[in-house]
Amino acid sequence: MENPQDVASSISRNPGLDLLRGLSILLVVLHHIGLRLPLKASALDEFVPRRILSALNWNGYEAVFVFFVLSGFLIAGHSIRRWGTLARIDAGAFYRRRAARIVPCLVLLVAVLSLLHLAGATDYVIQRDGQSLGRAVLAVAGLHLNWYEGVTGYLPGGWDVLWSLSIEEVFYLGFPLVCLVVRSERVLVALLAALALSLPATRAALEGNEIWQEKAYLPGMAAIATGVIAALAAARWPARPAWLDRAFVIGGSLGLASVLFVEGWWWSWIGNGVMLVLTLSVACLAVGLDREGRRALAGTAWLRSFGRLSYEIYLGHMFVVFAVVAMWKASGIAPYWSFLAYVPGVLGAWALGALVARAWSLPWERLVQSKHRSNDAPARPALAPD
């Protein structure tokens, strides 16, 4: 799951979108702790409704799809601001910016995971039949780790999180080329809409393999395409009334909350269509927050900081989860108090992400971009016509 933080290097950050990203990465961290120390087995079950506990523990997958939509929205929006229209996108500059953001952290993570595997560290050894370290590294480099897991089974948690990057980066490898070949915005939107609306059908068609159903290319790409369409809509209608942005924010928030809290009701009614409700709700939120989100909501600075660090937190949080869970279980403390383990788990994930960003990923990103800044085309104010 990539966080397109490079957008912030050329345009001001959007606190509303950072808040949404922060909520999403927090749900991912809570999910991976909850798989090992579920909140319903703790003291919180006595006075917190189970629906809320379930929402906190079991929405990690949905949170990744929130990121997919936001990734499409932010990266397409940035491209429109930089080149004026997607038909004039500079593929070389686009790929360079993606690589500058993604590769340094990814290389570091794979190197550390490989060393831990070779050292025989608990929770990091690849030992399932049909899997090997070399093949896992190849799957990461070849952007098909999601397919590799679909065929061979889950990898250890530190590797498993990379399934979403395989989907995103395959999409973005083809995205500039499609934009340059199609050129017509109407045709591009039609193609993206067909992909976006295919989400329920593609998930339903993959029901025979639970892992592949969750991690296949097309469902994830459908969510990214939804974000791209939202970016095109926001750029095409820059003078829309403020009340409409507020309506998008309210409607999108209600839709997202309904999936997070009453997803079972949605599934009983429309099945896999619930994921389309999720992606369309996030798209509405993104369009509304594109302007309404410029005003920071008081008391949310901590969660927005999670959003700014979401890529680093996503890639590295399993190190913290494994360590906290291992220490908690070794302590012998009753599961009744296990909710307390969430505090060091969440704070530790943030601290590790902040350290990696400060010491590694952002310096590399700035170095690469500074060498090529003069080659970037100047931003244009609006979309060019078809």
Score class of each variant (00 low, 15 high):
V28A: 04
V28N: 07
V29W: 07
L30V: 02
L30N: 05
H32C: 03
H32R: 07
I33K: 00
I33F: 15
G34C: 10
R36N: 11
R36C: 00
L37Y: 01
L39F: 12
L39M: 10
L39S: 04
K40G: 00
K40Q: 07
K40S: 09
A41D: 15
S42W: 04
S42D: 04
A43M: 14
A43I: 13
A43E: 12
D45V: 10
D45I: 02
E46D: 10
E46Q: 15
V48K: 08
P49R: 02
R50Y: 09
R50I: 02
R51D: 11
I52S: 07
I52D: 04
L53V: 01
S54K: 11
S54Y: 03
S54T: 08
A55N: 06
L56P: 00
L56V: 13
L56S: 03
N57W: 03
W58P: 00
W58K: 13
N59M: 01
N59E: 00
N59R: 06
N59Q: 10
G60H: 12
G60Y: 07
E62D: 01
A63D: 01
F65E: 12
V66G: 05
V66R: 10
F67I: 04
V69N: 11
V69G: 08
L70C: 10
L70P: 03
S71A: 14
S71K: 05
S71F: 14
S71N: 14
S71W: 01
G72R: 11
G72A: 10
F73S: 14
F73L: 03
